[in-house]
């Protein structure tokens, strides 16, 4: 039982990370119907910037409280990523807004490769470690262990999701976003400044990516220029699983994917009598995705929408 509980906790934490990144994918898709494949790399840039700033503060020997150091790192990551998101949309997507769907998809992949290589040039090929400033508390719940940082990840992603839902459903900006998502041209005619709404979406998505990046590098204790790729892929899967374009769906999809992977890795071996081992955990996760897509093509929480012209 304690092992099952531990696997569940592992899955929830992993899932919360996926959910945070998936929120960025889903927001951009909801409004632009564009899969921003550079999103994973923005997460990586967030992690790298935060590490650089935190590392510099720690190395300078200024006796700042840990919380303030973390906030400085996070603020730097958020600023850089927001600017990055704005720039990416400006140079890679806006010129192609009326081009065939395939074109912005290709620029997205291009941007992701450029960001990866830029990060490699700036920060090098080495893994960068998180300075050991965080006092990690371990708590015991029914035989399972959970660390303070794991609790923080789960709470933070829940708070961000609620905040995002409020922003979309309760604010003027959110209304403009929903209008743009429904029909860009008509929203424009009604006086919504589409360009600024779309820019804002990218900026918001990138801020989420920055937060996710900082959480990931604080949790795993390291960052690497390549870390955005697999994270992005998993988060994209989570977004599709939950119903891409749907904020609640991204969170549900992320959590589900995390739990499925975790339980899959823990139990496939014993269940199949050793025929399939824990290396099938990704296969298991993607099989669930295929099943969901076959039975519910729009994802778990996605609404069935007619193809727009």
């Amino acid at each position: 039982m304690d092992i099952f509980l531990q696997q569940l906790i592992n899955g929830l934490v992993l899932g919360s990370v996926y959910a945070l990144v998936a929120l960025g994918y889903t927001m951009v898709y909801g409004i632009m119907e564009l899969i921003n494949f550079a999103h994973g790399e923005v997460t990586m840039v967030g992690a790298m910037v935060a590490l650089a700033v935190i590392g510099a503060i720690v190395a300078s020997g200024v006796g700042m409280p840990v919380l303030l150091v973390m906030v400085c790192g996070l603020a730097a990551a958020v600023l850089v990523c927001a600017a990055l998101g704005f720039t990416i949309e400006r140079i890679a997507y806006r010129p192609l807004r009326n081009a065939p769907r395939l074109a912005p998809l290709i620029t997205a992949i291009g941007i992701s490769i450029i960001l990866q290589n830029l990060a490699m040039l700036i920060w090098g090929r080495q893994y960068i470690t998180f300075p050991p400033i965080l006092e990690i508390e371990r708590y015991n719940i029914g035989g399972a262990t959970i660390t303070s940082i794991q609790i923080l990840i789960v709470l933070l992603s829940a708070a961000i999701m609620v905040g995002l839902l409020l922003l979309i459903n309760r604010t003027q900006m959110g209304r403009a976003m929903r209008a743009t998502a429904q029909n860009r041209r008509v929203a424009g005619l009604m006086g919504v400044n589409i360009n600024s709404v779309i820019s804002m979406t990218f900026v918001l998505g990138s801020i989420l990516a920055a937060v996710a990046g900082v959480m990931v590098c604080a949790y795993y204790g390291m960052a690497h220029y390549y870390m955005g790729f697999m994270l992005g892929l998993k988060a994209f899967t989570a977004a599709v699983l939950g119903g891409i374009g749907n904020v609640g769906g991204a969170v549900l999809g992320g959590l589900l994917l995390g739990v499925i992977e975790s339980l899959g890795a823990g139990y496939i071996g014993p269940l199949t009598g050793g025929f399939m081992g824990s290396h099938y955990q990704d296969v298991f996760a993607f099989m669930v995705l295929i099943l969901v897509l076959v039975l519910r093509p729009s994802g778990l929480l996605g609404e069935r929408v007619a193809e727009r012209p």
Binding site: I3, L14, M230, G266, S278
Partner: peptide, 21 residues
Amino acid sequence: AREFTTDKSTDFMAILTAIKG
């Protein structure tokens, strides 16, 4: 226990939990 991962994985909590048992 004989567990498996990949050369790109970052999360080993699941297999480590299985091993812990």
